[in-house]
Each structure stands twice: as structure tokens, then as C-alpha cells.
């Protein structure tokens, strides 16, 4: 009897221990995993789905990076050897979710290959071929939105009045993704500012401009879309723009009742004459 009691106590103790250790491990593991996916400053390959889903989907096979590395256009014309590819697979110390593909424009930008070798090879759906295809179903790299180029005008020497259009000329979509805006230079009275302006409806975020920028640290750089872009919200509508009005077609007016408004509508209160 005593031994069976002992055994039971031992069993309960080991079970508790297992459960406790499992819970501890689970908590540590969750905490760590949550931490490592936190880095938002990352540029993904063309066609990458929303970052949050990308982190779930990418199975870390590296097929995209291998396709980029071995694409025909990656051969150095002088040596005949292949150069470093655009896409890197995150390793320890890169501070990105380990094993996922990303690129750093100042190291190697994306050359916006017409045949986009990196996308169709993705087996998981982390890179969505449809998002970089046109209506006819053909691959169209201009549709990719890896990020958005942003100009820091204080360090861009074109904004100082010095002539530079390096980014403009580097852009595969020059004249569309980057345009040059002319302004008279009042300081000298006889020169023109030639300012690079990026248009987010066209810019793919390839980073060729960032790689080409002549300043010590690029004055034009690509940021992930979620970081580079603001959101005006639904209550600001371009009344003069049919497309923008369509955005709020299904919006419902929501009426809230407060201490002040419960007596009547705001309009009624404003028109009641009490104001004067």
C-alpha cells in the first residue's frame, strides 16, 4: 500500500514537472519567436505578400534566392562569372526572421528582371505570381511593390541646387516613378533646381535609385510600404476625384450620442441661435 502511494505521488510529481517544464518552454519559445519576427524594416522579393502573412508562409527554401543568383542576367560581362544575387537568405546576425529572403539596395538592388525568375519558383505562396502579372496573365515586374523610394530633401544635393539626376537616370521607370520638377533658384537668380520626385503609384521599390545615389549615405532610399506610406483615413475624400469618392461609397455614417448631442443633432445645436 505504501509503495503504491509512493508511486502515485511520484507519478503526480513527474507529471506536474513535465507539464510545468512544457509550459515554461512554450512561454520562452513563444516569446523568442515573437521577438524575432518583430523587425519591420525589411525589403522582400517582388510579389511578396503582406509581411505578416509572408512570415507565416515562407518555408525558407531559398529557391527565390537561388533563381535570382543564377538568372542569366547576373553574369559579369567582364569576368563571365556570376555576381552576388539580389536576394539574401537571412542568417544569424542579419536581424531578420532567419531563413527568409530579403534584399539591401545599397548592397545589391533588384534589377527588375522582365521574366522575374524569383517569383514562379516559390512553392509556398509567399511570393504571389498573380500580384506581378498583368491582365493577360503575363509576368509584369512593373506591378511589383517591394517598397517605396523616399527622398530626404535635406541631404539630397539636388535640393541644394547642385545638379544631380543620378537616381532619375538609374530608375528603370524613369519619367514615371521619378520625375524631375523644375524650380527657379532664387538664391542665384539664374539657375534651376531639378528636384527628384517619387510617385508611389509607379515606384516598385527596386532600390536602383538608392544604389545610384551619389551622397555619402543615400538621400533617396527604399522603405517598406507600410512604413513609408501614411493613411489619410476615410473622412478625407477628394470630392473632385470620382475614383476617390468610390472609396467611401459603402461607408456608413455612424451617429454617436454624447451628453451634449443627445438633445438634438450638432447641426440643430449650431443653428439654434444660442451661439450669438
Amino acid at each position: 500500500m505504501a509503495t503504491s502511494d509512493n508511486n502515485r505521488r511520484k507519478f503526480i510529481a513527474t507529471t506536474l514537472q513535465s507539464v510545468g517544464l512544457t509550459a515554461l518552454g512554450g512561454l520562452l519559445w513563444s516569446g523568442y519567436s515573437d521577438e524575432v519576427k518583430a523587425s519591420a524594416l525589411v525589403l522582400r522579393p517582388p510579389g511578396a505578400i503582406k509581411e505578416e502573412d509572408f512570415l507565416k508562409a515562407c518555408i525558407k527554401c531559398g529557391l527565390c534566392a537561388e533563381a535570382c543568383q543564377n538568372r542569366e542576367t547576373n553574369i559579369d560581362r567582364h569576368t563571365g562569372l556570376s555576381k552576388a544575387g539580389t536576394l539574401q537568405m537571412a542568417k544569424g546576425g542579419d536581424h531578420q526572421l532567419i531563413g527568409t529572403p530579403f534584399f539591401v539596395p545599397t548592397e545589391v538592388p533588384c534589377y527588375m528582371c522582365e521574366d522575374i525568375p524569383c517569383v514562379p519558383v516559390c512553392p509556398s505562396g509567399a511570393l504571389d505570381q498573380l500580384s506581378v502579372s498583368n491582365e493577360a496573365g503575363e509576368l509584369d515586374i512593373n506591378k511589383s511593390r517591394m517598397g517605396l523610394a523616399v527622398v530626404h530633401k535635406e541631404s539630397c544635393i539636388a535640393f541644394w541646387g547642385i545638379q544631380c539626376d543620378a537616381c532619375y537616370r538609374a530608375c528603370p521607370l524613369l519619367g514615371e516613378a521619378i520625375t524631375i520638377e523644375m524650380h527657379r533658384n532664387e538664391r542665384t537668380g539664374k539657375h534651376t533646381f531639378m528636384l527628384p520626385i517619387v510617385h508611389d503609384t509607379v515606384c516598385t521599390g527596386c532600390g536602383l535609385c538608392e544604389a545610384a545615389c551619389v551622397t555619402e549615405k543615400p538621400a533617396i532610399f527604399v522603405l517598406p510600404n507600410e512604413i513609408a506610406k501614411g493613411v489619410a483615413g476615410d473622412h478625407y475624400v477628394k470630392g473632385w476625384d470620382k475614383a476617390d469618392e468610390a472609396r467611401i461609397e459603402n461607408a456608413k455614417a455612424e451617429e454617436t450620442v454624447t451628453e451634449l448631442s443627445k438633445e438634438g443633432t450638432a447641426a440643430g445645436y449650431l443653428n439654434s441661435g444660442d451661439l450669438y
Partner: peptide, 22 residues
């Protein structure tokens, strides 16, 4: 719970394999 393949975050197997490849 976390929304990423959890073992892949620390798997020495694929870390070593990717290390050799990349």
C-alpha cells in the same frame, strides 16, 4: 499562437544547411 513556423526559427538543421549553401 505566434504566427510563424516556430521550430524553423531555431532549427540547427536548416541553419546549418543554409549556412553551407548561402
Amino acid at each position: 499562437v505566434v504566427g510563424i513556423a516556430a521550430f524553423e526559427v531555431l532549427s540547427p538543421i536548416t541553419i546549418m544547411q543554409r549556412g553551407i549553401i548561402f
